[in-house]
C-alpha cells in the first residue's frame, strides 16, 4: 500500500514537473532570442542521488530528463551520481533541491537499495 501511494504521488509530481519544465524551457528560448540580454549560463553538473537499485536510477534519469532545466547525460552507479546538463544553471542548488524534494523520496520508497 505504501508503494502504491508512493507511485501515485510520484506520477502526480512528475506530470506537474513536465508542465513546469515545458514553460521554463520556452521562457529560456524566448529570452535567448532577444538581443542585448545574455542567455542564462549553461553548465554540466554532477548530482549525487540517494542509494537505490539500477531500475530506480534509470527511472530517475528519465524523470530528470523531462523536468525543469536538466538533461541526463550519464548515470554513474558506482558513485551514485547523475551527470546532467543544465540549461539554466544560474541556481544549481535550486535544481538539486527540486530533484531531492520531488523525486527522490518516492523513488527510494519504490526502489530503495536492497539489503545485502
Amino acid at each position: 500500500m505504501r508503494k502504491l501511494a508512493a507511485a501515485i504521488g510520484l506520477a502526480v509530481r512528475f506530470v506537474v514537473a513536465v508542465v513546469v519544465a515545458g514553460f521554463a524551457t520556452i521562457a529560456v528560448i524566448l529570452r535567448s532570442g532577444l538581443p542585448g540580454r545574455p542567455p542564462p549560463p549553461v553548465a554540466l553538473l554532477r548530482i549525487g542521488f540517494a542509494p537505490m537499485s539500477e531500475q530506480g536510477a534509470a527511472l530517475l534519469g528519465c524523470m530528470v530528463s523531462l523536468t525543469p532545466g536538466t538533461t541526463t547525460i550519464d548515470i554513474d552507479m558506482e558513485r551514485h551520481e547523475l551527470l546532467v546538463h543544465a540549461l539554466d544553471a544560474s541556481d544549481p542548488e535550486a535544481l538539486l533541491a527540486s530533484i531531492r524534494r520531488d523525486f527522490e523520496p518516492g523513488l527510494v520508497a519504490l526502489f530503495g537499495e536492497p539489503r545485502r
Partner: peptide, 26 residues
C-alpha cells in the same frame, strides 16, 4: 517555439532541451 529553440540555442546539448521538453509539452 520549440522549433525556434532548435534554431536559436547555442549548442547541441541546449537544443536537446528545446526538442525534448517543449516538444513533449506541445
Amino acid at each position: 517555439i520549440a522549433g525556434w529553440g532548435v534554431v536559436t540555442l547555442p549548442d547541441a546539448l541546449s537544443r536537446q532541451h528545446a526538442a525534448t521538453k517543449a516538444g513533449t509539452l506541445a
